[in-house]
């Protein structure tokens, strides 16, 4: 066992990778929140054809592994787009960076799960809230954004926090599409030095030092926001 060497050599690059991972998770989560809210509102709308399309989309995304989706966005999607655009623009070839592909893959995948969180939290708000707002002159849309959604966010917050925490760890799958994040760096170091136990233990600890305080922060925020609901 040589934790000292592994710690000195590996930790700096892992902390750097951690910066990348946190940035990736934040950007992906913003995308996921946007997709999640739009899908939720679409499913709550009364447009039947839109609902059918969205349900099909949800089933596909939730029915396939995140890893497959990442591989698809990174390797397959650029090929398809290049082929289609190539019909009009000969010789066109699309390039996508591992980082962009990671944001899209994580964002779309988590967006689908978050849409269910948003949808159920909106449905959990008493119908009387919408009626009270309407009676005061709000349109349905305004009542939704000003009265219903702010309340539903309070209900959605704990599951949203948990999903963010899960996403932070799922960024490790991006190693498969060559993103230089924590696991890819750990793997490279471990295979060079044979410090297997040390390397992966340090990698695990890096995840823990972020996710444990994050869990605590979510609990405190939850308590504050839910005081009057």
């Amino acid at each position: 066992m040589d934790f000292k060497t592994a710690f000195e050599q590996l930790t700096p690059s892992l902390l750097e990778a951690l910066g990348l991972v946190v940035t990736l998770a934040l950007l992906s989560f913003v995308l996921a929140l946007t997709i999640g809210m739009l899908v939720a509102l679409g499913r709550l709308s009364k447009v039947r054809s839109l609902q059918v399309v969205l349900i099909a989309f949800l089933e596909i995304v939730r029915g396939t592994p995140l890893l497959v989706q990442l591989l698809y966005v990174y390797y397959v999607l650029p090929e398809i787009i290049s082929y289609i655009v190539g019909i009009w623009v000969p010789g066109y070839h699309m390039n996508i960076s591992a980082f962009t592909a990671s944001i899209i893959g994580l964002g779309v995948n988590y967006g689908c799960y978050l849409s269910e969180v948003f949808r159920s939290s909106i449905q959990a708000i008493d119908k009387g809230q919408l009626e009270a707002a309407k009676a005061l002159g709000y349109t349905s849309r305004k009542a939704m954004w000003h009265i219903v959604i702010p309340q539903s966010i309070r209900i959605a917050l704990p599951p949203l926090g948990n999903y963010f925490n899960a996403m932070l760890k799922d960024t490790s799958l991006c190693a498969f599409i060559t993103l230089g994040e924590i696991i890819l760096k750990t793997q490279a170091y471990a295979s060079q030095t044979f410090l297997t136990i040390e390397s992966y233990t340090i990698a695990a600890l890096i995840y823990l030092i972020v996710s444990i305080p994050l869990g605590q922060a979510i609990r405190i925020m939850e308590r504050r926001l839910r005081r009057h609901v």
Binding site: D126, G128, Q129, E131, A132, K134, A135, L136, G137, Y138, T139, K142, I147, Q151, H228, V229
Partner: peptide, 18 residues
Amino acid sequence: ASLRQEVGMVFQSFNLYP
């Protein structure tokens, strides 16, 4: 919605924003 502004309503279950 704009005409509703002329009509105030009070509900059995209050429906205050919690």
